[in-house]
Design a protein around this nucleic acid. Structure first.
Lengths: 171, 171
DNA sequence: CGTATATTATTAGGATGCTAAGCAAACCCC
DNA sequence: GGGGTTTGCTTAGCATCCTAATAATATACG
């Protein structure tokens, strides 16, 4: 193969974009996430909840399974990477749906503890029954080894990003 | 090592979650994306635009660099993985900011062609000047080889997901 | 003790995303 | 050529996310 201007370098020259590994990786991550949302949104809608609501329900269920007695809005905010005002709204709607409850926290009059109701627990069980195959279907483009590789790379990336976010929030 | 209940299987038993490679990969992808948004949002805000607006501007700029004369809203919708009504809103605001213009399309009275204004083109240039280091900073947790691996895995996943989305939309 | 600071949750206002529904123009096909 | 279908964009209504500002409680410290 003779040295010819590659498609990338031609595009970089014309458009000013770099298309280095970092750009390609970031773009593919954003694109993959967009496609996953496209698939997951109608899936959750079948159960009458949104993806964000499911995030809260799943987090509460995990916390419950770990023996904790409810999570404060701040805890949910931290675990879900979502700001407190957004959590307030999601919890409002979940409460209106009768899936969670806001309880007072004994030692702290400011805080509120969110817990699953019986109805919420039932919904989580129902979703989880269908969840395995759904997730497998989404990741079916990769074999288990590749899925593990992806997990490893993203874990490493996540650690780095948490560092970035932490220093951004302290300064 | 003796056969002991692993942390995963214990958690799976308690919480009903699987924690198979597919689950781990999906969760890490969602988490990484959330962290990236946390970092990118304030970055774009410095230039007076949002991430979605930047997506449109960058797409228009690429299209322009490829010699195309404007993109219809439908084209933007397809490239950005966003439904047409959402594109309408983003373009409304970009137009109000004077960064893009809606022109009529010669052969089709329904369609509208979106193009960058001079001001929009200047903003893209200004953002691109800072963009390389910003993206490198985000991906700095991975070396170039790992970045390429990530891109390859996500590309494969994307192909699979596009198939899923396509069959979902034809049925 | 009592004030200053920090934490917890909420409200207000703006931007994005979706689905469903509507309108106008273009297309298809008999 | 005309009726039915498809396409392109928009509007309406809801859920999510954000930042900034408020209110109330806890904590720290002089």
């Amino acid at each position: 193969m003779k040295a010819q201007p590659s498609a990338e370098s031609a595009r970089a020259h014309a458009g000013g974009t770099a298309d280095r590994p970092a750009d390609l990786a970031l773009r593919s991550l954003v694109h993959a996430f967009g496609l996953i949302e496209r698939v997951m949104q109608p899936y959750f809608a079948r159960f009458g909840v949104t993806g964000s609501q499911w995030g809260v329900l799943r987090t509460l269920q995990r916390s419950e399974a770990a023996g904790e007695a409810g999570l404060r809005l701040t805890d949910l905010s931290n675990r879900l990477l979502v700001r407190p005002p957004s959590v307030t709204g999601v919890i409002d709607r979940l409460e209106r749906l009768g899936l969670v409850a806001r309880d007072t926290v004994p030692g702290d009059l400011r805080a509120k503890s969110v817990t699953l109701t019986r109805k919420g627990r039932e919904l989580v069980t129902r979703v989880l029954a269908a969840h395995g195959p759904q997730v497998e279907g989404i990741l079916a483009g990769l074999n288990p080894g590749e899925q593990a590789d992806l997990h490893r790379l993203l874990g490493k990336l996540t650690s780095h990003l948490e560092g970035l976010v932490a220093e951004r929030e302290t300064e």
